[in-house]
Structure formats: C-alpha cells, structure tokens
Amino acid sequence: MEVRTIKVFTTVDNINLHTQVVDMSMTYGQQFGPTYLDGADVTKIKPHNSHEGKTFYVLPNDDTLRVEAFEYYHTTDPSFLGRYMSALNHTKKWKYPQVNGLTSIKWADNNCYLATALLTLQQIELKFNPPALQDAYYRARAGEAANFCALILAYCNKTVGELGDVRETMSYLFQHANLDSCKRVLNVVCKTCGQQQTTLKGVEAVMYMGTLSYEQFKKGVQIPCTCGKQATKYLVQQESPFVMMSAPPAQYELKHGTFTCASEYTGNYQCGHYKHITSKETLYCIDGALLTKSSEYKGPITDVFYKENSYTTTIK
C-alpha cells in the first residue's frame, strides 16, 4: 500500500517557510505537534488534498525554529505562539472599519479597549522592536488589523473576551517599542525636605499616572512627601515624541487643539466601556464603527496623549 502524501510549508514567522512532505494517514499533531492554519487549530486533523502548498504555523520545537521565533517575536515564552494563534482565530472574524481616516474595530468580545489602543497607536510616533509587531502594525494602518490585535493580546497575556485596560495595554506595548531616546527629568520640591531631581528613561519617561493635564504637570502637581507634608512635583525636561497622561476616570474637559487623542471610560472596574476622542479640525468621538463630532467635550476621561518633541522648564 502506497503512502499518500502532500507537500506543505511549516513556519513560526510566515517569513521562513520549511518544506514538509506530510503523510495523509496521520494527523498534523502526530507529525508536527500543535499546528495552526489561519489561526485555526488543526492539530487533530489529517492532511487533505486542499492543504497542498498551504502554510501551517507550528510551535518552535527545534533550534532553527526557536531562533526564527525569537528573532521575529522577541520572546522565548513557549506558550506565546499558541496564544497568538488562538487569538487570531477570533480577531480574523472582527470587522476593521476605516473611521475618520483611522483603522478602528467594530465592537465584539469586549474589544473596546483594543480599538482605543489601536486608534491611539496610529496617532503617536512609535516604532516597535519585534519585527512581528512592526509588520502587523503597518498592515493594521492599511486596514488589516487582525494579526496586530492578536499579537497585542498575546504580548499582554490576554484572551479574547476578557476586559482590558488601555493604560495597561499601552504599557505592555511600550515595553516592546523603541523608547531608548526618551528621557524625563522631574523635580520634587518640599518646604521641609528641599528639592530632589529624578531622571527617568524609556517607558517611565512617557507615562504618568495622577493627572490628565500635561500643562498642569509642567506647572506642578501636589504629591505627598515622605515627611508627610505636601510637596510639588513638576516637569523639568521632556525628550520624547509623545507623552501619555493618565488618571482614574473623572469628568474632564478636553479643549480642541490642546491634545492629540484621549480615552474615555464609562462604567466601573468590573464592567465598563471605552471610547476614543481625537482632536482634528474639530473633536471626534470614535466608538467602534461609530463616529460623532463636537466642538467641545466633557466626560469621564482616563488617558490623554500629547505630541511632544523637546521641553525644558522655565521655572527657576
């Protein structure tokens, strides 16, 4: 009895394709271990004539594949690729409408935090270190965002349907971005203890939790000093293409032309909904596939993004 075979390709990165001759009487799992086709788990399936010449994702289970996976995804987590594939199996079914010149995501599976993050990423200057993220990001900007969303979920250790947080998501993504040249110098002034300067680099240099107003941050924000008295913390120097200011959701007025974009969060910790506000020729609110415009805006804002380049204080 002759062994019926077909020729397929296996890959971990969709760049390096490895030619395989597979036995049609055995499952993919018996031949390769966990195997995925377009995100779908085909591990328990036997090869079919229609699979001839198709590319299958496999887990990096030998040295060659491990090197290829690390170079593309910059992670050695053995569960990463499987999590990416199972997320992709959902995100490829989502709709990605162009809204006001940006790629958004039609609401499904509690994905409003991903839509808000995706919209924000198209408006701030950011370059990702893992080629996987950078490639998928370019495709997302062009309207094909399924891979990018699935990668975000995998890097953030999230599953489809789980509630997510924009600030946490951005923080994970910033860790995989090139923020080497970003720098922030802060000064804390206390009447009792004097003053202390701190220099922050990388992710810490672009994120701040405690106030939404970048102007206020430049002037000074009140913080408790270690001595128990009130101290003032203010920005001395900022070198970065953008800054992200966050605070627990509270009524906040966004003035046209003073910011790049913002995240609105309605609801409580267990259950809520994100919308995205962007400042173009007027203010726009993007909620999944829905767009509304207004000249002014007041609502429960939790993150505001500002364009920056270089700032030095005039406070002496």
Rank of each mutant, 00 (worst) to 15 (best):
V3W: 15
T5I: 09
N16W: 07
T19Q: 09
T19R: 15
Q20W: 09
V21A: 09
D23I: 11
M24W: 12
G29L: 08
F32H: 15
G33M: 03
G33L: 05
G39T: 12
G39H: 13
D41N: 15
T43I: 07
T43Y: 10
I45E: 12
K46Q: 15
K46I: 09
P47S: 06
S50C: 15
H51S: 07
H51L: 06
E52Q: 13
G53R: 13
G53P: 05
T55F: 08
T55L: 08
F56E: 04
Y57G: 07
Y57M: 11
V58D: 04
V58Q: 07
P60I: 08
P60W: 09
N61S: 12
N61P: 10
D62F: 07
D62A: 09
D62W: 08
D62C: 10
D62M: 10
D62R: 11
T64D: 06
L65Q: 06
R66C: 12
V67P: 09
E68G: 07
A69R: 06
F70M: 15
F70G: 08
Y72C: 07
Y72P: 06
Y73P: 05
Y73R: 02
Y73S: 03
T75S: 14
T76Q: 08
T76G: 10
P78G: 07
P78F: 09
S79E: 15
S79A: 15
L81C: 08
L81Q: 09
R83Y: 06
R83D: 06
M85E: 05
N89I: 06
N89Y: 10
N89A: 11
H90I: 12
W94L: 01
K95C: 08
Y96M: 03
P97V: 14
Q98K: 15
V99I: 08
N100W: 03
L102H: 06
L102G: 04
L102E: 03
T103W: 13
T103A: 06
S104R: 03
S104K: 03
I105E: 02
I105P: 00
K106L: 14
A108E: 15
D109P: 04
D109F: 04
N110S: 03
C112Q: 05
L114V: 08
A115I: 05
L119S: 04
T120G: 04
L121V: 13
E125F: 04
K127T: 14
N129F: 06
N129G: 09
P130Q: 03
P131D: 02
L133E: 02
L133R: 01
D135Q: 13
Y138C: 15
Y138P: 06
A140Q: 02
G143A: 05
A146K: 07
A146E: 11
A146Q: 09
I152Q: 03
I152K: 02
L153N: 01
L153G: 04
A154F: 02
Y155I: 05
N157D: 11
V160N: 04
V160L: 05
E162Q: 10
E162W: 02
L163Y: 12
G164Y: 02
G164E: 00
G164K: 01
G164R: 03
R167G: 04
E168H: 11
S171R: 15
L173Q: 00
F174Y: 06
N178H: 08
N178S: 12
N178T: 07
D180T: 13
S181Y: 13
S181D: 14
C182Q: 04
R184H: 03
V185H: 04
V185K: 07
V188K: 14
V189N: 08
C190F: 01
G194H: 04
Q195P: 15
Q196D: 10
Q197W: 08
Q197M: 12
T198M: 14
T199R: 10
T199V: 14
T199E: 11
V203A: 14
V203F: 15
V203I: 14
A205P: 03
M207E: 04
G210N: 01
G210P: 04
T211R: 03
L212C: 10
V221P: 02
P224H: 15
P224K: 10
C225F: 00
T226H: 15
T226S: 12
G228W: 01
Q230K: 14
A231Q: 05
T232D: 06
L235K: 00
Q238V: 01
F242K: 00
F242S: 01
M244L: 06
M244W: 02
S246Y: 02
S246E: 01
S246N: 01
L254I: 01
G257M: 06
T258H: 15
F259I: 01
F259R: 00
T260N: 06
S263N: 14
Q270R: 12
Q270V: 12
Q270S: 15
G272Q: 02
H276G: 00
H276S: 04
S279P: 03
S279M: 06
E281R: 03
T282Q: 14
L283I: 13
Y284I: 09
Y284K: 01
Y284T: 08
Y284F: 11
C285V: 11
I286S: 01
D287N: 03
G288W: 01
T292R: 07
T292E: 09
K293Y: 07
S294H: 14
S295R: 11
Y297I: 05
Y297P: 01
G299L: 01
T302W: 00
K307M: 13
N309T: 09
Y311W: 12
T312M: 14
T313Q: 08
